[in-house]
């Protein structure tokens, strides 16, 4: 009833709406999941750049396995960790397309470490989107390569101990060292301001691909409220207080 009498709700006043590159499928992600925001931002960048017809996404194994149900572009679903190799095959054979991999921390920084590092080291002309929430979401909250020291998960129920479980892997810092990468940044999507910054970073990464500048890596420090057993709002707070200290935001490389 209220909507019908609100004169502001008129087409000429619309300033923000769902991207046309997003399909109508309801996302399978949990309430408050950062994946939804990152999926949306990629869709918005693709729409803004007018590259929907020439973009090919490589979906991972993990929570984003069904990312291809949300963006209305061509997709390939890779096996766990192999998205950078699949992206390499696609981009080498179709150099005029835009190719991005979309991967979580287990996919990119554990099982697929070799594929990640070597794609970056060859300077594959692709965008790698890395969503780091410090946990395996899809399989039910197990320890990830990026799980923080002391952080609990179902496979380190008493907290991660470096002496037993190893240290959280700052793979993005590592990738920034490789001459093949041109743009390496760490962003977040917990506030409106950070969302806008991440969108800018994604835009720059896709623009870099147009200029054949090599690999762009966009890490997004993210929440997993289900895996962390918090509300989405609590998870954002916890991330700010704990994750950002270990994974500081900002550009590591921009050449």
């Amino acid at each position: 009833m209220i909507d019908t009498v609100n004169p502001i709700i008129a087409p000429e006043n619309l300033i923000y709406a769902k991207s046309e590159v997003l399909l109508d499928n309801i996302m399978h992600y949990c309430p408050g999941c950062s994946h939804g925001v990152v999926n949306k931002l990629i869709a918005e960048v693709i729409e803004d750049m007018g590259i929907q017809q020439t973009t090919i996404g490589i979906a991972p194994v993990g929570c984003a396995v069904f990312a291809y149900n949300y963006l209305d572009i061509d997709w390939q679903e890779a096996s766990h960790g192999r998205a950078p190799a699949v992206a390499t095959g696609v981009k080498r054979l179709l150099p005029d397309t835009f190719v991005f991999s979309y991967q979580g921390d287990g996919d990119l920084a554990a099982i697929g470490t070799a594929e990640t590092i070597h794609a970056c080291n060859r300077g594959e002309n692709i965008v790698m989107v890395f969503v780091n929430n410090g946990i395996y979401g899809m399989t039910g909250g197990q320890m990830a390569p990026t799980t923080l020291p002391g952080m609990q998960s179902s496979t380190c129920p008493f907290g991660r101990e470096a002496s037993r479980d190893g240290h959280p892997l700052k793979i993005t810092e590592l990738l920034a060292q490789l001459p093949g990468t041109s743009y390496v940044t760490r962003q977040a999507v917990h506030t409106a301001a950070s969302v806008r910054k991440t969108k800018k970073a994604l835009r720059l990464a896709f623009e870099n691909q147009k200029l054949n500048k090599g690999t762009s890596v966009i890490e997004v420090v993210a929440t997993c409220s289900s895996g962390w057993k918090m509300t989405p709002v609590q998870a954002n707070k916890w991330m700010e207080e704990n994750m950002f200290a270990y994974y500081p935001l900002g550009d590591m490389k921009n050449e």
Binding site: A78, R82, A85, V86, V90, L93
Partner: peptide
């Protein structure tokens, strides 16, 4: 990696 590059290319 090589078989997954094949997957990528074959998918195209």
């Amino acid at each position: 990696a090589s078989i997954n590059m094949v997957y990528g290319g074959a998918g195209c």
